[in-house]
Structure formats: C-alpha cells, structure tokens
C-alpha cells in the first residue's frame, strides 16, 4: 500500500481536474453523448474499491453492503462499456460503406 498524504492527494486532484477539463474541451458536439457514456464507464473504476472493501468485510451487514457495492460497480463498468461501444460503432458505418 502506497501512502497518499493529504497534500499529495490534493495535487492529484488538481492535476486530474485540469486533465479532465482539457480532454473534453476539444470534443466535437457529435461525440458529446458517447463521451458522456465513456466517462460514465471510466468511473466504473469504483469496482476496484468495491472489491477491496468487500474482501475486507467482516460482519454479515458489511458483507451485504459490500455485495451491493460490487454488483452496482460491475453494472456501472459493464453497462457503461457496452453502451459506449454500441454508440461509437455507429460512427464507423461510413467506412464500411466505403
């Protein structure tokens, strides 16, 4: 486990916030919905946290909540991925038709 101190976390927050802002500011309007879906997929990383927390669950109550956390997080990740891929695939029809 790498220790992340308060200020290190703050620096990570700050730099990530600018990164997110920069990445999305150049997106053409036609990609806004797929992009929203894509970023929705990316916060599916919460699955990692859910797995860790569930792994450390001790009482039945913790297990129940942990189970919910993992199931919801997996839904976020998988649903977000499939939805994004389906939307983006449509933008390829042009190439297929030649």
């Amino acid at each position: 486990m790498i220790e992340i101190g308060g200020f290190t976390a703050l620096y990570i927050f700050m730099l990530s916030a600018f990164t997110g802002y920069e990445v999305i500011s150049r997106v053409p309007v036609i990609l806004h919905t797929p992009m929203m879906s894509g970023s929705n997929f990316i916060h599916g990383i919460v699955l990692v946290g859910a797995i860790v927390v569930m792994g450390g669950a001790e009482s039945p109550l913790e297990q129940v909540i942990g189970f919910i956390a993992v199931a919801l997080a997996a839904g976020n990740a998988v649903g977000g991925y499939v939805a994004t891929v389906r939307m983006l695939e449509m933008f390829n029809t042009k190439d297929k038709k030649g």
């Binding site: 990530s16 997110g20 990316i42 916060h43 919460v46």
Partner: peptide, 18 residues
C-alpha cells in the same frame, strides 16, 4: 487508491464542463 482518485476526478471535471 490513486487510480480511483485520478479516474474519478477526471470524470468529475469533464462532467462538470459537459
């Protein structure tokens, strides 16, 4: 978990801009 902090914050700011 740094991956969660980074991914979460990137989405947080991108979502706010959107």
């Amino acid at each position: 978990n740094a991956a969660m902090i980074i991914a979460g914050t990137v989405v947080g700011s991108a979502g706010t801009l959107l």
